[in-house]
């Protein structure tokens, strides 16, 4: 049974008041053996009333939600799985966009080489997004977080 610790990162996300973050990321720690692979799960919550662009956008100018993981200490990032997006139909126009709202998961597969030393390391990542609500669109923002990874 892997040790699971819930850590909440609610860093500046789109406004002067960090308590009022538009996007928050909750990260479960992951325990993994050297020479094996695993998946980290990011629980993303978008503030009620807001949406962020999906991970792929039809309009080349929009800012898709993107995830970047830094090179970790013996952590090799694999496939990143975003959930299906929801359709946002714009009143008064023909346009339809794909967005995320509410809560959703992003899954990050990763591998640990066999020569990785035991111990806990923090794997830094960044979620980039652009949010709108019904009254405003906020400039693109980036939310950094750390995934605690315990290698056995």
């Amino acid at each position: 049974m892997p040790l699971v610790v819930l850590i909440t990162f609610a860093l500046a996300g789109g406004g002067p008041d960090p308590k009022d973050s538009i996007v928050t990321v909750n990260v479960d720690s992951v325990t993994v053996g050297a020479g094996t692979s695993s998946t980290a799960v990011l629980n993303v919550r978008v503030k009620k009333g807001y949406h962020i662009q999906a991970d792929s956008v039809a309009d080349e100018f929009l800012i898709p939600t993107g995830l970047e993981m830094e090179a970790g200490d013996h952590l090799i990032a694999g496939k990143v799985d975003f959930p299906p997006a929801v359709e946002f139909r714009l009143q008064g126009a023909d346009d339809t966009w794909l967005v995320y709202d509410g809560s959703f998961e992003i899954r990050v597969a990763f591998a640990v080489p066999g020569d990785a030393r035991e111990g806990v390391r923090m794997w830094r990542g960044a979620l980039r997004y652009q949010a709108c609500d019904d009254r405003r669109c906020l400039p693109p923002d980036t939310l950094e977080f750390d995934i605690p990874v315990s290698v056995l």
Partner: peptide, 11 residues
């Protein structure tokens, strides 16, 4: 007109 997506006036 400030942005109001609930009554958006694209046209």
């Amino acid at each position: 007109s400030l942005l109001n997506t609930m009554a958006f006036d694209a046209k």
